[in-house]
C-alpha cells in the first residue's frame, strides 16, 4: 500500500518536474527574392558590328532567385537599348540569352522568354548583344530587359 502511494507520488512529481515542449514556429508565405549578383559588361567585336558580353573582355550578368513555397516562373521581357549615343541612328538587333543552374537554356532572342523554375533556388547567367551592320558610334550603350518573378 505504502509502496503504491509512494509510486503515485513519484510519478506525479516526475510529471510536475518533467520536460516541457519548446516549440519554435515559422509561418512562411510564398515569396520570391530576385537579386542581380553581378553586373555584365559588353565589348565591341573585332569587326565592329557587334557589342556583346561574349566578346573578348565582356562578362555576363548573374542573377539569383530564392523562392518560398512555390516554384515561380522567371520571365524576361524583350530587350532594348535604353541608352545609346546621341546621333547614332543605325538599325540594330538587341538580344539576350540565358542559362541557369536549374536547366534554363535560352538561345539569343530579341523576344520575351521565360522559364518555369524546377527548384526553390536558382542562379541565372545572362548574356546580351547588340548587332548592327552599320557599326556603332562611340559612347555608352545600355541593353535593358525586365526580369519578372511570378506565379503563373
Amino acid at each position: 500500500m505504502h509502496r503504491a502511494v509512494f509510486g503515485l507520488v513519484a510519478l506525479a512529481a516526475s510529471q510536475a518536474a518533467g520536460a516541457t515542449d519548446v516549440n519554435l514556429n515559422a509561418l512562411l508565405i510564398s515569396s520570391c527574392t530576385l537579386t542581380l549578383a553581378t553586373p555584365g559588361v559588353m565589348t565591341a567585336s573585332p569587326t565592329g558590328t557587334v557589342i556583346g558580353s561574349e566578346q573578348s573582355g565582356g562578362t555576363p550578368a548573374s542573377m539569383t532567385i530564392v523562392s518560398l513555397g512555390v516554384l515561380p516562373t522567371i520571365s524576361f521581357a524583350a530587350p532594348s537599348l535604353s541608352a545609346k549615343p546621341g546621333g547614332w541612328t543605325a538599325s540594330h538587333t538587341d538580344e539576350i540569352k540565358f542559362t541557369s543552374t536549374r536547366g534554363a537554356n535560352q538561345a539569343y532572342t530579341n523576344s520575351s522568354s521565360s522559364f518555369v523554375e524546377t527548384g526553390l533556388t536558382d542562379t541565372f547567367t545572362v548574356h546580351g548583344r547588340v548587332t548592327s551592320a552599320e557599326g556603332f558610334a562611340a559612347g555608352n550603350y545600355t541593353l535593358t530587359t525586365v526580369v519578372t518573378c511570378s506565379q503563373l
Binding site: 515569396s31 520570391c32 527574392t33 530576385l34 537579386t35 542581380l36 553586373p39 555584365g40 550578368a61 542573377m63 535604353s82 541608352a83 545572362v126 546580351g128 555608352n140 545600355t142 541593353l143 535593358t144 530587359t145 525586365v146 526580369v147 519578372t148 518573378c149 511570378s150
Partner: peptide
C-alpha cells in the same frame, strides 16, 4: 544605366 530590372509580381 541599369540593365536588368528585377521585379516580383
Amino acid at each position: 544605366q541599369e540593365t536588368l530590372h528585377a521585379r516580383v509580381c
